[in-house]
Amino acid sequence: MKTPRPQPAQSVTAPRTISRVVPDPTALKALAHPVRLRMLGMLRVDGPATATQLAVRLGLNSGATSYHLRQLAQYGFIEEAPHASRRDRWWRASHELTSVPASEVEGETLDLDLAFNQAILSLQVGQMQQALEEYAELPAEWRKASTASDIIIPMTAEQAEALTKRLTDIILEAMRVAPPLGELAPPDVVPFSIMLHAFPYPGRLPHREGDGEP
């Protein structure tokens, strides 16, 4: 039985509300898993899918895929999606964004923050490598739109925080007037990945007391 193709999304001109989730420590721990992060990303970018479809794309068996989907659903990252097919369970992302504020406390919360960021970084490195491998085959207009920049600016912590907030606001504003992720878009519109990394240049700040070499 063929699945009816969704109609292309209409061009969005008025800003819309972006749905986001701010996971608590328990949910963040469940999400900080490479397979679950990839699953959630696929459901956000490509729209609803079944466990069988995701298993094929991830190279996993359907049992493992179903387990990870249940974990994502348990913590509210995904939900069942209405679908014409009654034989398969379809899943969709519950939100467009996951927001994880920087940890301001020590201990387990900071450890969870670090584990999540490590999992995200590993995923992003893989995506960047794939993008580089595909770069030469991109149409000229998309090569022109792509960039990989490394800019270092002397700043105070307050200035750095203000700058990263401005950059994030610009990106979110572009997202608000774009078609929602996961919907069939016009032919000239594709998901465009923007990865924002900002941090003090390594080795230039003193370690916290008790850290580092004795």
Rank of each mutant, 00 (worst) to 15 (best):
A30V: 13
S149G: 02
A14E: 11
A174C: 11
Q159M: 06
R89I: 15
T156D: 09
R166V: 08
E183F: 06
P6W: 01
G63H: 14
P206L: 07
D113N: 09
G47T: 04
N117Y: 02
T156V: 05
V56I: 09
A148K: 02
P202I: 08
E213N: 10
P154T: 06
Q129A: 14
N117K: 12
E108A: 15
R176V: 00
A32M: 02
V35E: 09
L132A: 13
I171E: 13
S103C: 11
A178T: 09
S11D: 10
T156P: 07
L31N: 02
V35Y: 09
S103E: 09
A160Q: 07
T50D: 02
Q71D: 10
T156L: 01
D24W: 03
M1A: 15
L138Y: 14
R176E: 11
P214D: 11
N61P: 00
T109Y: 09
Q7H: 11
A115E: 12
T52L: 09
G126P: 02
A49G: 02
R176C: 06
L205T: 09
I78H: 04
S99R: 11
L132P: 00
D111S: 11
R166P: 00
Q127S: 10
E108G: 00
L132D: 06
Y75G: 05
T164S: 15
H33E: 14
R38K: 13
G47A: 05
K2R: 15
V100H: 06
W90L: 06
K165A: 13
L121D: 08
V12M: 03
Y135T: 02
F192Y: 14
L114Q: 13
I171S: 12
G47C: 06
L43R: 08
E134N: 10
L123W: 09
E213Q: 13
D188P: 03
A160F: 05
S193L: 14
